[in-house]
Amino acid sequence: MSQLTRRSALGITASAVAGLGLAGTAYAATSSAPAHGVVPAAGDEHSGHMGGMDHTGHSAPAPFDEVYQGRRIQGAPTQGGEHAHHGGYSVQIDGKELHVMRNADGTWISVVNHYETFATPRAVARAAVVELQGATLVPLA
């Protein structure tokens, strides 16, 4: 018979903690509160329309172009091309592409914040700027 070793006990504990963390993230993503405490900035929403959605079909988020924490972030819908399978939206930080994807539930993720979901591409871009802490975004190969 095998005995419980310190290594296996630590592994079991780490797995349990990771599972609880994922469960908490899933719960937070389904709650009615804004995603990860992100409060929409002025101009993100206007009455009569879903937050930040475009007027054409209400399916694609509206384009944005702003300076956030000293970094220029831009986002706009794309027409087909290589980005069509990523939600049809392109996001750039200081002119360099931030790879974003739209999840089946309508939330967005990026390569910088791959395990966090956000309500809009603008929120994804802002979170990436915070996470980069001034570092240059390196495009995917």
Rank of each mutant, 00 (worst) to 15 (best):
L4G: 07
T25K: 12
V130E: 13
Y89D: 01
G87H: 08
H55S: 15
V100L: 08
Q74E: 04
P40H: 08
V17T: 11
A141F: 01
D44Q: 13
G70S: 08
S110F: 00
A84M: 11
Y68Q: 05
R72W: 00
H46D: 02
P61G: 00
P40W: 05
A127D: 02
A123E: 14
T30C: 05
A62E: 10
S32C: 05
A60D: 10
R7Q: 15
P34H: 04
L20F: 13
W108F: 03
S59K: 13
E131A: 15
E45R: 14
A14W: 07
Y89L: 02
A23G: 12
D65V: 04
V138G: 03
V124I: 03
H49K: 11
A14C: 13
H58V: 05
M53D: 03
A41L: 14
G24C: 06
T56H: 13
L10W: 02
S90R: 02
D44L: 09
A16C: 09
A141I: 00
Y68I: 06
S90N: 00
E45K: 14
L98M: 12
P40S: 05
A127W: 02
G70C: 06
Q92A: 13
H114G: 09
G52K: 07
E82D: 06
L10M: 07
R102S: 01
Q74D: 01
Q79E: 13
L20C: 13
Y115V: 14
Q92D: 11
G11K: 10
V91E: 04
P34D: 03
A35P: 00
P61W: 02
G57F: 12
L4Y: 08
I109D: 02
I12V: 14
G81M: 09
G11D: 06
H58E: 11
P40T: 08
T30H: 12
D54K: 13
A123C: 03
G52A: 15
A41R: 15
H86E: 12
A9W: 00
A60G: 05
Q74S: 04
T107V: 06
V112Q: 05
M101P: 02
A35F: 05
Q69A: 14
A123F: 12
Y89P: 00
H86Y: 08
G21W: 05
A26M: 12
R102W: 01
A41D: 13
L4V: 14
R71S: 01
A42G: 12
T120L: 03
Q92P: 04
F64Y: 07
M101H: 11
T30Y: 08
F118C: 06
Y68H: 07
L98Q: 07
A104N: 09
A125C: 00
G81H: 11
G106V: 08
G37M: 09
V112D: 03
A60W: 05
Q74L: 03
S47I: 11
H36P: 02
E82L: 07
T56Y: 05
R122A: 00
H83D: 13
G48A: 12
G80H: 04
Y27A: 14
T117Q: 15
Q74T: 07
G106A: 13
Y115F: 14
H85S: 07
A119F: 08
G21E: 02
G37H: 10
G81E: 06
A125L: 00
H58Q: 13
P34G: 03
T107Y: 10
H55C: 09
A125H: 00
D94P: 04
A35M: 08
V39G: 02
V138W: 01
S31M: 03
